[in-house]
Design a protein around this nucleic acid. Sequence first.
DNA 1: TAGGCCATCTGGTCCT
DNA 2: AGGACCAGATGGCCTA
Length: 181
Amino acid sequence: MDPVFSDSSSCDPFPNTDDEDCRGASPRRASSPPEHLQKKKRRRGRARSNASTQVVKKNRRLKANDRERNRMHNLNDALDALRGVLPAFPDETKLTKIETLRFAHNYIWALSETIRIADLQAPVLLSPARSPDSCSWSCSGSSSSSSPDHCASSPGSPGGPEDLLHPERLLGFRGFLPGVY
DNA sequence: TAGGCCATCTGGTCCT
DNA sequence: AGGACCAGATGGCCTA
């Protein structure tokens, strides 16, 4: 469980900014306005509305923080799901976010290459029904088959299609990735 | 101890 | 107006 996530509205996530609100509700609040200050009633009314708008703003901020937290959690969940479908690494260290994205990118490319190579090697008769379209997704355009991240190492000459899918190959031996996309 | 990664907060911008 | 998205700032944790 995430203690922070459990109930952000009850605890106080704003140790700094809150002081302001506390100050606003502090003993400075006048109890009985002198008569000669009655003309300032309006002013006081405005001050009160300022205080209330501060409260509204604070509540809005808290809600926004909560939503943002949820959003990031959803993003992390999606990232975890992505990790789940990627080939496992020998050492069970969890991929970082950027590694996961780059790994996935390379993995997709490798799968596409594998299919492309298999198509090239397969006898035409074995796949008569296969239309040009079926290949288009795997080798579509320049992006898919042109420059994968791990191309830097030796993309064009794998021992076989299965070599392309080797985790360490896909990740470029982990740690090699900076700047690659 | 420095550097990397991460979670969270925050204010701005865009969209509905 | 309110929510989603984004990027910068900040602080904590971990590792070499």
